[in-house]
Design a protein around this nucleic acid. Structure first.
Lengths: 153, 153
DNA sequence: GTATTTGCAAAAGCTTTGCTGCAAC
DNA sequence: GTTGCAGCAAAGCTTTTGCAAATAC
């Protein structure tokens, strides 16, 4: 999930294209999200962004996240609410992927799977929806935990 | 989504089987969820349940919802957070289905789609996960809104 | 120069929790 | 009779908002 040059340019360009300002805070937050190696909640993003610019505020983080969500430049996840009600964010990738969260050990696996694209096509055809955001989250026991704790909840 | 006798028995039985008490409040809440014709958030569930038993408390609603979630007797949804951060609940059905939320008019369409079962099989095979909960939510423009507002965000 | 965005602080919204007394088994 | 659950009230956590000052263009 490391950022590529083209990804970064598209983000900045996307903002400009819509008449939105490219402020230092937005730049900082976008870079932080793109370079993070995992899923960030708002608090974690704030913490990391403050390492680059200590003046950045919580409100700016939320406002920027909402902006990026609206522009569909980040995806929002729950990861099955395993650690409370907060959300997790990640830079949008070209193909949607599934998040599988182990409800026992908390590990999150990501998977790109072709059938998801097919499913989206079928959904669009079936309903006439113009699909903008897809969020497929799965909870269960990962292979390890499943073997270790057979038969438990 | 009207309740069937067998659904109702399985709920009550499920609780007893695990040594959990079947209190009047739980009975009331379960019946309310099953007979609701839509997706309920906690506040709506509380309101409806109070029509049956005015003494029921918010805390009981949340505690019961958590219980039913853990037992996988209800599914939890966001519906793309179109109306804030709250969650929506619905009685679990035998087959998973997709929720498509129109981000413009707020309409929610539900769809049972066979490819989702196939997707789950592939996911399990691919990752070794024992899949317990699946949540597929889609946001976009419904057919009507799409035709009405071409080219807008 | 003007319009947008930020930081700050306060509030809002949804959900959880400690405790006492009540209800289910 | 025990044990777990409900009601109440208070707190907790995440997210949003109003406003004056700062910043991007």
């Amino acid at each position: 999930m490391k950022p590529t040059h083209s990804q970064r340019r598209s983000l900045m360009g996307e903002l400009a294209m819509r008449g939105l300002r490219m402020t230092v805070q937005r730049r900082t937050l976008i870079e932080t999200i793109q370079e993070a190696d995992g899923h960030l909640d708002a608090a974690a993003l704030l913490m990391l962004a403050r390492q680059r610019d200590p003046r950045i505020d919580r409100a700016t983080v939320y406002r920027t996240l909402n902006l990026l969500k609206r522009l569909r430049l980040v995806d929002e996840l729950d990861l099955m609410h395993l650690h409370g009600e907060k959300h997790y964010y990640e830079a949008k990738t070209t193909k949607d992927h599934v998040h599988l969260t182990c409800t026992r050990c908390g590990k999150v696996e990501e998977l790109m799977i072709r059938t998801l694209e097919r499913l989206k096509r079928e959904l669009a055809q079936e309903t006439g929806f113009d699909i903008r955001v897809t969020r497929l989250e799965v909870g269960g026991l990962c292979r390890k935990c499943r073997n270790r704790f057979k038969g438990s909840v």
